Measured scan of single mutants.
Amino acid sequence: VTTYKLVINGKTLKGETTTKAVDAETAEKAFKQYANDNGVDGVWTYDDATKTFTVTEMV
């Protein structure tokens, strides 16, 4: 189990959260659900070296 981080660069919501998951795919599903629940829709990137997902909403 690995800890993954999500950085949110939203128009109205900004911040970070973490989740523990067995792999990046599982973490991504959890983060996308979290973003969807919070009304964040944007471009996703993932950095495997730092285990960090970033979602950026276009203005």
Rank of each mutant, 00 (worst) to 15 (best):
A21D: 03
D41N: 11
K29N: 06
T18M: 12
A30F: 15
V40E: 02
Q33N: 08
V1L: 08
Y46N: 00
T19V: 12
T3D: 11
Y4C: 01
V55S: 02
G15I: 15
V59G: 15
T26G: 07
K32H: 11
E25I: 12
A27F: 00
G39Y: 06
T12A: 10
D37R: 09
A30Y: 14
V59Q: 13
F53G: 00
V40S: 02
E28L: 15
A27K: 00
E16N: 07
Y46H: 02
A49I: 15
Y4K: 00
D41I: 13
G42D: 01
T56N: 12
V55H: 01
N36R: 13
G39I: 03
T56D: 10
D23C: 05
D48T: 08
E57S: 07
Y4H: 02
W44N: 00
V59S: 12
T56F: 07
A24Y: 13
T54D: 03
V1T: 15
K51G: 04
E16I: 12
G42N: 01
W44H: 00
T54C: 05
W44L: 03
F31T: 00
T2C: 11
Q33E: 09
G42M: 03
D48G: 06
V43T: 11
T18P: 02
D23L: 04
Q33P: 02
T18V: 10
K29H: 08
T50I: 07
F53K: 00
A27I: 01
V40Y: 07
T26H: 11
A24K: 14
T12I: 11
W44S: 00
K14G: 06
T19I: 12
Q33W: 05
A24S: 13
A27N: 00
N38E: 08
N36S: 12
T56M: 05
K29S: 08
G10F: 13
V1H: 10
Y46G: 00
L13S: 06
D41E: 14
A24Q: 13
G42T: 02
A21R: 03
K51S: 05
T17G: 04
L13D: 05
M58G: 12
Y4N: 01
T17K: 11
T3K: 12
D23N: 11
T17L: 12
T3E: 15
T54P: 00
D37N: 14
D23G: 04
Y4G: 01
Y4F: 12
A27H: 00
N36H: 13
E16S: 12
K32N: 04
K20M: 15
N38T: 07
G39P: 01
T26R: 07
G10P: 03
V1E: 15
K29T: 10
V7S: 04
A49Q: 11
V22G: 11
T52V: 06
D37I: 10
V40Q: 03
F31K: 00
